[in-house]
């Protein structure tokens, strides 16, 4: 623990990793921020900006990880089901390794992988937590915009509305 603290003192540097959300803004979900963001701000207190500590120096993670971009995203709702249980958390996962990262066992057809991150994903409560973690680890990251939701107001009575002009749809059950 003391080693980490000394590192924290020694390495009070921001953005060790090469963030993809730099001036060029690879992920522009902030740019498309809806006007309603203003009300949003009032109700949510934003966490104060945190200093980024280079944790990968002491984490013991292999250096190769720093060459792989991670994605920060939310699960999109599965269209086969109506529930949206998994879609609230933010996650980090890794792109697959190109080339020989995966193969099938020629005898049994079992899938094998040389990529030790292929099954790994890390969950976070907020996007900021995930970004902070990635920066701390010095990973390149890409923030994928969450699902854009527009829900029309729906009304059962709409089925029975009188329409003065030619009907464009013959409704059924």
């Amino acid at each position: 623990m003391s080693a980490l603290r000394s590192c924290q003192r020694a390495l009070q540097v921001r953005a060790v990793g090469r963030s993809l959300v730099s001036a060029r803004s690879m992920a522009t979900d902030s740019q498309s921020a809806p006007p309603a963001k203003a009300t949003d701000d009032k109700q949510i207190e934003h966490a104060p900006p945190r200093d980024i500590v280079a944790a990968d120096l002491v984490s013991g993670a292999p250096a190769e990880l720093r060459h792989r971009a991670v994605r920060i995203f939310q699960y999109s709702r599965s269209t086969t089901q109506s529930g949206d249980a998994k879609s609230s958390r933010w996650r980090i996962d890794w792109d697959i390794l190109p080339g020989g990262g995966r193969w099938e066992n020629p005898l049994m057809g079992w899938a094998s992988s040389a990529d030790y991150m292929q099954g790994t994903r890390i969950g976070f409560r907020t996007k900021e937590d995930a970004i902070h973690f990635a920066e701390k680890q010095g990973w390149d990251y890409y923030v994928q915009q969450p699902e854009v939701k527009v829900r029309p107001v729906k009304n059962y009575a709409e089925n029975y509305l009188y329409r003065p002009n030619k009907l464009r749809i013959i409704r059924t059950k």
Partner: peptide
């Protein structure tokens, strides 16, 4: 445009 018209869920404060 649709992206500007999200139904925003605001987390309970």
């Amino acid at each position: 445009p649709a992206s500007a018209a999200l139904l925003i869920k605001v987390a309970p404060s």
